[in-house]
């Protein structure tokens, strides 16, 4: 069950989710069975609005599935877990707190002593390369730096599972590639299990051990692609033929999916 560090496995077993709305019941996820092995980095990719984020909320215990179960380290997820951290598309920092106090926030609400949590937060700021900004306020940082603070905050509790919901979606392409590279470096050190939602195929391949391609809503697992690129990942990854092959494979699956649905080719990129 447990891998390197505190990493724990995440399993979805026949997970279904339906929303009861004004126009009857809308299925968002239908019968998903898959698992993230402990210490693996898994990306979720699929057409926009297909229910990727919903799946993340289920894994985080924010949303109970209509049927089926989700297990973390073999235990049913029934609510938010203290061993799970989330990173959202918005950095969601508290603007009235310094960078250091933002990173220390999850420890503060857990009642960790001030000296201890500050030391730990400072350590994580070093990990994400922001040691010089401990006393800055979020408004003084760029979008990319803010997201790094938010990643440091997620890692400060030493999570078993990290859930990331398009964390680089609001950044420009260049910052985004840099952040991806940094995230792999950071993650190769902390080694928790990661479920990473993205709609960027290249990003998914570059970061992950495994990519799950989801169908249009309601989300089904179309295919799981093993990313057999060596770690640590090379800086010139996008130029490697194997990278391009994997990218093409995912692209092909997504294109087939949109054809099968009889919609114009517009996959979420």
């Amino acid at each position: 069950m447990s891998g390197p560090g505190n990493a724990q496995s995440l399993e979805f077993e026949d997970v279904c989710l339906e929303y009861a709305g004004r126009h009857g019941v809308t299925p968002a996820v239908s019968g998903l069975t898959a698992s993230v092995d402990a210490g693996r980095f898994v990306s979720l990719i699929g057409p926009s609005g297909c229910g990727k984020s919903t799946l993340l909320d289920i894994a985080g215990g924010l949303l109970p599935p209509t049927s089926g179960v989700c297990r973390l380290g073999g235990t049913d997820v029934t609510g938010p877990q203290s061993t799970t951290s989330m990173v959202f598309q918005e950095a969601a920092l508290l603007p009235w707190r310094s960078v250091l106090d933002n990173v220390a926030f999850p420890l503060e609400v857990k009642g960790v002593r001030a000296s201890e949590r500050r030391a730990r937060a400072a350590e994580l700021l070093r990990t994400v390369g922001l040691d010089g900004f401990a006393n800055a306020y979020p408004s003084e940082l760029s979008g990319g730096m803010r997201q790094r603070v938010s990643i440091a905050r997620a890692l400060v509790t030493d999570p078993a599972l990290l859930l990331m919901d398009e964390p680089f979606g609001a950044l420009d392409q260049q910052t985004r590639s840099m952040m991806g590279l940094e995230l792999t470096r950071t993650w190769e050190r902390v080694q928790c299990s990661v479920l990473f939602v993205t709609h960027d195929i290249g990003e998914a391949v570059a970061l992950s051990d495994e990519v799950w391609v989801l169908s249009r809503r309601p989300a089904r697992l179309l295919t799981r692609i093993e990313v057999d690129l060596p770690r640590p990942r090379a800086d010139d990854l996008p130029l490697q033929p194997r990278f391009q092959e994997l990218e093409a494979e995912i692209w092909g699956t997504l294109r087939e999916e949109s054809r099968a649905m009889g919609v114009p080719e517009r996959v979420g990129v």
Binding site: G60, L62, G79, P80, S85, M86, A91, W96, P106
Partner: peptide, 29 residues
Amino acid sequence: VPRSLVRLTRALDLSRGTALRKVYLPAAV
């Protein structure tokens, strides 16, 4: 109060009181 902060209080499983004191109140100031 931004939805992202509301999600944060849920993800961190904060009690109502803690969320009010530490997040909502300063965010609302």
